[in-house]
């Protein structure tokens, strides 16, 4: 299973960035390889408009199965998201990455 997180930093101890479109980083955790990789999203957060769709496009390209985030996508981002099979889990806004993954696995946060 491949997980994507919107994050404020690059490690397991970083906090979830509640914003989807203007998240600082996208983290990808592949549980088969047990590998966490970080992708900076700074170029997109600098965009005046339309950050949501671009970030989602980037996430889709990284090809995760599940996205764990805080606030969830806006209208345009949701439209782009719907072209993929990725499952969105919201409500992790106040958690660290490792806590968010645990919370998801124990069904404490859902779509």
């Amino acid at each position: 299973m491949k997980y994507a997180f919107t994050a404020k930093g690059e490690s397991w101890d970083s906090e979830i960035d509640p914003r989807l479109g203007r998240t600082e980083f996208i983290l990808i955790y592949d549980d088969k390889k047990n590998e966490l990789s970080a992708y900076s999203n700074s170029e997109i957060t600098q965009q005046a408009h339309g950050a949501g769709p671009l970030t989602v496009q980037k996430i889709i390209d990284l090809n995760p199965d599940i996205l764990i985030t805080g606030n969830g996508p806006g209208k345009n981002a949701a439209e782009v998201m719907s072209t993929s099979e990725i499952k969105i889990i919201t409500g992790a806004g106040d958690m660290k990455i490792k806590e968010a993954l645990e919370a998801y696995k124990s069904d404490k946060i859902t779509g």
Binding site: Q47, A48, H49, G50, A51, P53, L54, V56, Q57, I60, N76, E79, V80, T83, S84
Partner: peptide, 18 residues
Amino acid sequence: NFNAVIKVGTQIMLFPEL
């Protein structure tokens, strides 16, 4: 320059309000 058109997978998506 306004991010009003993007390519996602096999689609071109447009955001007319942008």
